[in-house]
Simulated assay, not measured.
Amino acid sequence: MSKKLNELKISTPGRVCLFGEHQDYLKLPVVACAISLRISVEGHRRDDRIIKVQLPDISDEETFSLDEPIIYSKERDYLKSSVKVLMKHGFTFSNGFDCIVHGQIPINAGTSSSSALIVTWINFLARMSDQSQILPDEKLAWLAYEAEVLEFSEPGGMMDQYSTSIGGIIAIDFYPETRVTRLNTELKTFVLGNSKQPKDTKYILSHVKDQILAVDKILRNIEPEFSLQTVSYDDLRFYSKYLSDSQYQILEGTIKNRDLTVLARRELIRKNPDHKLIGQLLNEHHNVLRDMLNISTPKIERMIKAALKSGAYGAKINGSGGGGCMFAYAPEDSERVKDAIEEEGGQAFIILPDSGSRQEIPEVVK
């Protein structure tokens, strides 16, 4: 048994959005937490310029050549887009790679499995490139955002890439410019619940995003100084006469979420926050997402209700919604909360905050 030359293994966490769901693409603040479910890419250089990636978790495999122009052959062709973005930024590759991807993160469930894969892959590629670069966390996040969102004109924001790259608990401000703050707060056990209901992330994101951007455009035409970043919740009623009931509802929900995020961040800046208050704010955030943005599902509601009844301090849907995951903050009774979620048909994981994208010790290969 011996290790192959040039072997490298990189892993990256998934994430939950603690506060600020459907906010980052509006340049409104978010608070996110990397979680102890990870995805890894392990591989070595080849003698030719072929990239071959095995994805056994989804019974798939991808192969393409660096000697040919990179042409996307499917929607969200992330393995190719990551290479293309790195080349655009001056990275070169004299060799291809044989790689294998393994993941613990639920797929298409709102826990950033796609972003974690892209961050992992770009981290791997940059280190294995001719330039052999270890990218700073925030540069890694930006390159992943380019490869995932900009290359395919997707509707998403930047939270996923920054959270999975940097790790821990972070607050991100996007206005007037992007600023990431690492929060050294000590949160305890969460329970992640996968409803196993597939969701159309692209549709849900664009649906919610298109609605609030239409509202923003209407109000800016009436009042050029109007801003989602600065408007006071108390002043919203003034704008109701210009909007339909549904438009006003999504505006009100957006600003409520913004203000809840600011309030939660104020508590999370503390080293030892009030854990019961964090749970209460999670519940309030979920109520807005359910009742005003309409992104929850009956099954997720049952899972949340069961988690709260079993001792969780708070719970909310996670990600764009319409299926996927919820999570509960459960510093006590986490096993009981896990069992309750599973009794409602969910797949449950006890998780903790985790570090960002990192190099691992590769497994020994024959």
Rank of each mutant, 00 (worst) to 15 (best):
Y162E: 08
T261Y: 03
H89K: 13
N95P: 01
D259A: 06
H285M: 13
P353D: 13
I222D: 08
R46Q: 12
A171F: 11
I212Y: 02
D77R: 06
L277R: 06
G324N: 05
S320A: 15
R302T: 05
K241S: 15
M87G: 09
N283A: 00
L251G: 05
R237S: 15
R290F: 03
T201C: 06
I107G: 03
L192V: 12
V180F: 01
G321M: 01
S296H: 00
A307H: 04
W142A: 12
S153H: 11
T92L: 09
L135S: 05
R76E: 14
K139P: 01
I250N: 00
E363H: 11
P176M: 05
Q359D: 12
C325P: 02
D200Y: 06
F97H: 03
V288Q: 00
E75H: 10
E7C: 12
N318Y: 02
V101P: 02
F152W: 09
K80R: 15
I361T: 15
P13Y: 14
L251C: 01
T63P: 05
V337F: 03
A34H: 04
E151P: 02
F97A: 06
F349G: 01
P198F: 01
D245W: 06
A141N: 08
C325L: 02
N287S: 13
S320C: 07
I107L: 13
G345A: 10
N294M: 04
T201H: 02
E62V: 15
R15W: 06
I204S: 05
S2D: 12
T297G: 05
V119M: 09
G319Q: 04
L37V: 09
D67R: 10
C33S: 14
A315Q: 05
G96E: 11
S153N: 14
V85S: 03
I255N: 08
D235H: 15
K338Q: 15
E335Y: 01
A340E: 04
V30E: 10
A116C: 12
S320Y: 01
D77K: 07
F19R: 00
R38Q: 13
Q161L: 02
R270M: 14
A144H: 09
I107H: 09
S40M: 05
S163Q: 14
E62R: 15
P353Q: 06
S244L: 05
L117T: 14
E284S: 09
D235P: 10
I71M: 10
V101A: 01
N184K: 10
Y329A: 08
F238K: 11
K27S: 15
K202S: 13
K27R: 15
A340G: 03
S129F: 04
G43Y: 10
V149L: 08
Q133M: 14
E42W: 00
R179S: 14
S81I: 08
S357K: 11
F152S: 08
D210R: 10
V31Q: 11
V149E: 11
L289R: 03
F91M: 09
D130Y: 10
K4D: 12
T230S: 14
P273E: 09
P353C: 07
G168I: 07
L66Y: 05
K316I: 10
Q211M: 06
S132H: 13
P362E: 08
Q104N: 00
D234H: 14
E284H: 07
K74N: 11
S2A: 14
L150P: 07
L55T: 09
E61P: 02
Y248S: 03
I105W: 01
D47G: 07
K305E: 13
I222S: 10
P273G: 11
A312M: 04
T12R: 04
I10F: 13
